[in-house]
Design a protein around this nucleic acid. Structure first.
Lengths: 248, 248
DNA sequence: CGGGCTCTTGACTCAGCTCAAGATTTGTGG
DNA sequence: CCACAAATCTTGAGCTGAGTCAAGAGCCCG
């Protein structure tokens, strides 16, 4: 589909700085673990990647599935979740563009993963990526940093699930969205909300009805405003942040 | 205090296999990250370690403190927790002997850490341990695995905090204790419970009173029996496991 | 053996859940 | 482009599991 690596490696300096092919136009490269790779490394990785689309609601991986593939999210939103035998669901996190999907060390996913909307993945064979991780310490370090960040977020969410009120939880949710995917300035933000009310509820340990009531209340308080069903405007981010921590 | 590393390295093969000094008699070496180190590496690490005791209730680290020290837990129990501005507390995990205390990558602790009972730590300067991590990929790998396991446990706990009933939470707590520190056989287990009812409550997202009521109920059901205030016998571990997942 | 803990139990309250109607949005086919 | 069915979301009314408040029981340690 495109020129061989040899040409680029032998080419002028400028060519060596710029990745070729799909990676060159990848919108999430700077946000993903690929950002720590040199052009040569990127080309090697590119050669072992494949792209795949998942439609809304499609299951991407099952819990405890011993997995062959891991991936970067190119676009779309993924929900990661756990289930109890009777069907109760807890969403443990969402993945957005640039995020990494996969258990790099354990070999098994600790959660299910499902496409919330149309999701585009850049997939790698897990064993081959692990080889690269062994060969490139900076790649391992980067994936370690990723896991550390995921852990930090999980700990914050434990505080939310164990100790926050419904209002605080819903406020925290929109703060999280603003911080991760929002168009922010100091006081306001516009966020896309691709997930359903019931996904939000399963993320916050609440019911759909409670989430809906809390959102209505935040709208009445002038902190939130709808801009179409799946786009929301946060009118006062600092106040929302304070609400998320329980300080009124 | 003991012979130099050079002697051991030049000595007979048997000496090279056995660490010297404190590490030789360390009860948690095989459970800690030290288990992946060669004798020579262990000696190097030993030279930069120091031991310290913390008394019950003593604060070991503050959240967001940029930290100089990380540690292995030699003995005792540590609670890791987060606070809301108004004092609400969520315990995010307990550390027991052999566990690692510290944020290896971020440089900052995401939680407070406090001694539950008398705690003995084997401490390292964070920067110097990070240097060793850079030099010894197997050490970095081991600490990465540690973080992965911590993350898996956090995700399980999110399911508990978001979706389990009080009965299921308390059952899950004793199953966790049995799995991590219990004297187990297939059907029963004896576990030490060093933490207070209110610590258990703060770990489970409940109140002390609810925890106490649920424990009484499990005792009445014959699943639990007291063996002194801080030692408990689990009389039917499989049934307790089922209760923890909500299957009656 | 008494003072100060922690833990247990009881009685009552309430935040969030359940159940049930409507309202709004979305998708589809003519 | 509109109509209409299906899905999602909102709102209301009443219920309930866990919280709050309060009293009493055990336990530990001088």
């Amino acid at each position: 589909m495109r020129m061989g690596g040899a040409t680029a490696e032998q080419g002028c300096l400028r060519l060596k700085q710029v990745p070729t092919g799909r990676c060159a136009v990848c919108g999430v490269r700077q946000a993903s673990f690929c950002s720590v790779l040199s052009t040569a490394e990127l080309q090697q990785l590119h050669a072992m990647s494949s792209q795949k689309i998942f439609e809304p609601g499609e299951l991407i991986v099952e819990e405890d599935a011993s997995v062959r593939q891991v991936a970067n999210v190119l676009s779309g939103t993924i929900k990661l979740f756990k289930l109890l035998p009777d069907g109760r669901q807890q969403i443990t996190g969402f993945l957005f563009g640039g995020d990494f999907l996969g258990p790099m060390l354990s070999g098994e996913y600790a959660t299910f993963a499902e496409a919330v909307n149309r999701v585009e993945l850049c997939m790698f064979d897990q064993d081959r990526l692990r080889e690269r991780m062994d060969a490139w310490p900076h790649l391992e370090r980067r994936l370690f940093e990723d896991a550390t960040q995921t852990l930090d977020r999980a700990l914050d969410w434990m505080l939310l699930l164990g100790r926050k009120t419904a209002t605080e939880r819903v406020a925290s949710f929109f703060v999280m969205l603003a911080d991760r995917v929002g168009e922010k300035n100091d006081a306001t933000a516009v966020v896309e909300v691709p997930m359903s009310r019931s996904d939000i509820a399963d993320y916050l340990g609440l019911t759909m009805e409670t989430v809906s009531r809390q959102i209505s209340q935040l709208k009445r308080a002038g902190l939130l405003a709808a801009q179409g069903q799946h786009v929301l405007e946060i009118r006062d981010l600092p106040t929302l942040r304070r609400r998320a921590e329980g300080s009124q």
